[in-house]
Computed example of a mutant assay.
Amino acid sequence: MSEAVLDLQGIEKTYNRGRAGEVQVLRGIDLTIARGEVVALVAPSGAGKSTLLHIAGLLDTADSGRVAIGGVETGTLSDARRTELRRREVGFIYQFHHLLPEFTALENIVLPQLANGIRRKAAEARARDLLSRVGVAHRADHRPAALSGGEQQRVAFCRALANAPKLLLADEPTGNLDPETSDQVFAALMELVRDTGLSALIATHNLALAARMDRTVRLDAGRVAPL
């Protein structure tokens, strides 16, 4: 197998719900994603998929277990080093696009590159290339409010890939779209992922979309198993 881009071993997470007591959301998750592999994560609502994605992307910490990204063990990293690794190696896509409303589509993709030390000219060139790949280059100078839902999400895909991460984490990336638009936007996402050689973990309720990925795992009762 190719080098693992994401390696989760023994991930456990418990939340204190006050009077409701403690709730163990993750119960020893083991999951490895190889370079270039696209994995669907299927889970019922409340099963902990968002928690798992946040831990995998270093937005949250596990109570126990091991997280490695690109072979780098993250457990002993400082907060600054975790932030640097996340910014450089991980891209996030959510159900809602979360684009900055006061900036154009192009600027939304340029800004994370500037924050990563890329010069503006190079950042704009990459942004235009990404927009072209998902079919919305002609909307580069429009603000999010002037874009359709599908166009907004395509721009969000481009923003997630702006800094050329190795790992993409997506939480119901087409869940807010109608079925026809969802299918079209997901096809654009998969083409973008394949073209760039990304590894991806994509949470979805849509089994038809899951079937278009390399494999599917199911999260239920705090554990991961093949579907």
Rank of each mutant, 00 (worst) to 15 (best):
C158M: 08
A160D: 03
V25Q: 06
G91A: 12
G135I: 02
A125G: 12
R139D: 04
T204E: 03
G46S: 09
L131F: 00
P101Y: 06
Q24E: 14
P173A: 10
N163K: 06
A122Y: 02
Y15N: 11
H138V: 08
V67S: 07
S64R: 14
L198W: 02
M1P: 13
F96L: 11
H54D: 06
A105T: 08
D178N: 05
I29P: 00
D220T: 15
L77E: 05
E151S: 01
L201A: 01
L131K: 04
L77H: 06
L161C: 09
V185Q: 03
L207I: 14
A47F: 01
L177A: 03
T14A: 13
T204H: 02
S45L: 11
E3V: 15
L58W: 03
G150A: 06
L198P: 00
A125L: 12
L131Q: 05
L131Y: 02
L131N: 02
D220H: 13
D195A: 14
A34T: 15
V110M: 01
N206M: 10
Y94E: 04
T104I: 07
E124C: 00
E84A: 15
L201E: 04
D171S: 00
G28A: 06
P44H: 09
L207N: 12
L31I: 08
A80W: 09
L41C: 06
D183L: 06
R87F: 08
K121E: 14
A187V: 08
M213D: 13
L58M: 09
P101S: 09
F92N: 08
E37S: 09
E107F: 02
A170G: 02
A105W: 03
T83I: 13
I11F: 04
L192H: 07
I109G: 04
I202K: 03
L192K: 03
R82Q: 15
A125R: 13
A122M: 09
N16D: 15
T216M: 10
A115G: 08
K166E: 13
V38F: 02
R154K: 12
V193R: 05
L189H: 04
M190Q: 14
V5M: 05
L114M: 12
E191F: 00
K49P: 01
H97R: 06
S78Q: 13
R143K: 11
A200V: 12
R19S: 10
A146Q: 12
E107G: 00
G135K: 06
A105C: 09
G150F: 02
S199C: 11
V224T: 10
T174K: 01
T14I: 14
G175M: 05
V224P: 02
A170M: 03
M190K: 14
G197Q: 11
Q95V: 12
A221K: 15
H54M: 10
G48P: 01
I69M: 06
D178L: 05
G70W: 02
G46V: 07
E102W: 03
D141L: 05
